[in-house]
Each structure stands twice: as structure tokens, then as C-alpha cells.
Design a binder for these strands. Sequence first.
DNA 1: GTCGTTGCAAAGCGTTTGCAGCCTA
DNA 2: TAGGCTGCAAACGCTTTGCAACGAC
Lengths: 124, 124
Amino acid sequence: MTALRRTTQKQAVQQALEQAGQPMTPQQLCGQARQQVPGLGLATVYRLLRGLLDQGEARRVEIPGHPPMYELAPPGCTRHFVCQQCQRITTLPAPARSTAGNLPPGYALDAQQVILWGRCPECQ
Amino acid sequence: MTALRRTTQKQAVQQALEQAGQPMTPQQLCGQARQQVPGLGLATVYRLLRGLLDQGEARRVEIPGHPPMYELAPPGCTRHFVCQQCQRITTLPAPARSTAGNLPPGYALDAQQVILWGRCPECQ
DNA sequence: GTCGTTGCAAAGCGTTTGCAGCCTA
DNA sequence: TAGGCTGCAAACGCTTTGCAACGAC
């Protein structure tokens, strides 16, 4: 039986993800979490992230042109907005309508992910 | 001045992309194009793909849980359907409505990419 | 003949894994 | 005390780069 243990490393990584509020790379997470756990290794961050993914608590965000990032899994479907000017990535709330109605016949939809490129309010 | 040259390698890779009709990994492309150019190297495939990307003729498709793939850039916005049973990836036509109407105020939309997971007609 | 292009091999980079020591329960 | 967890370093796979030979123009 696997008894999960509560460690300072895990708490630091989770807290860094919470405070960020946006997708972060493993390197960014490691740098952030090191403020609380100085000796934290990058391999440990990867291991903790995998654990969070397996438990469904975190989600991997892959955006073309950007390195893979991770965020705490918000409820509902996923929309990410990429500002083409400041390169900042924002996680948007789920859209009012899903695109399921536009699917060709014969396809059954389980989940979706939307990536939007444009300009954010700060860069207008 | 850069005078682009027409080579058999470039033709083979482009033809492989056309015939596939769906996103392919560099390795798959190399294997396919080797039927016409036996000694084709993987590095060349990567170089040709970068050229196609720069010219806007091809597009990189990154789907979480799958290796990066490439496809000839179809017109309009992009929707990819990932069958969770057979793992096949289909490029769908642009939806009737865009999701632009659902954007929070202050955001300007330039492009979008939608990834859908579910079951394809063959796997229902 | 010029010089863009290619194939091979090595380097680069992000991610995973092996292992001994640490620390939670 | 047992065994999961960690940090370090090596290994791994994908992608890029260096370089000499090749071939399109």
C-alpha cells in the first residue's frame, strides 16, 4: 500500500502553482519553490508535477511556440489566451457555448482545449 | 540574395505531407519520404519542416500526450480531433461560429486553435 | 564554378531514471 | 524502524548544429 507523505517540497510546489495563477514551466516553479526549500532539485519538481497530473490536480499546458507548462486544473474546459505582444498566458473561464454543436456527424466529444492568440487588455 | 533550390528531398517531404492528410511526426515523415529518397536523414527533415513553417506552408501541431506533429497549413482556423480509443488525429474544418464572441472584454483575437478529445465515427 | 543543400555525427536541451541518504509516519 | 521521498548525476530521446561532400543553377 502506498502511503503518500506530506513533505515541504510538495507543499512549496503546490503553493507556487497556486500563487502564480497562470501556467508555469518546471524551471519557473523550481525557482519559485526554492525560496521556501533552498536545495530543491528540478527532478523533484518533475516528480511532484507527475504526481499532481496523475491525481488530476494539475494539468499540462502545451502551446505551440512555448515550452510545456503546468497549472492547477481549474474546473470545466480549458481556454488559454496568449498575448502576442507581452507573451503572457492567461487561463480564461470556460466559454458560454461549447463547440460541440459544430462537430461533424459521428464524432462524440469528451473534452476540449482552446488556445487563443491576440492582444491582452494591458497591451491594447 | 537567397535562391531557393528545388531538391528531391524537399519534394519527397512535401508529397508525404500531402498524401498523409493528417498531422505526422518528423520520424513518420522521414520514413515515408525515404521510399522516394532512400538516404534521407532526419536532420534534413527537420530543416525542411522549419523552412515550410517559416513560409507558412506547414503548421506545427502540439497535442498534450502526443509528440509534436506537422501538417500542411489548411486555410482558416484549426481544429484537431483526437480519438481517445484509436489515438488517430483528424484535422476538422473550421467551426461555423468562432469563440470570439465569448471573450472577456478587452481581449482582441487574432487566431485560435481548438483540440477536441472524444471518439471518432469508426470507434463508436 | 558557386553556393545552397544534404548526410553524418556530435552537441544541446528538456525530461526521466538510478541510487544512496534523508525524513515522515 | 520501514519505506517513501529527495538531491545529485547520469541516461535518455528529440531537435539542432558543425562540417565536408554533393548537386542545382
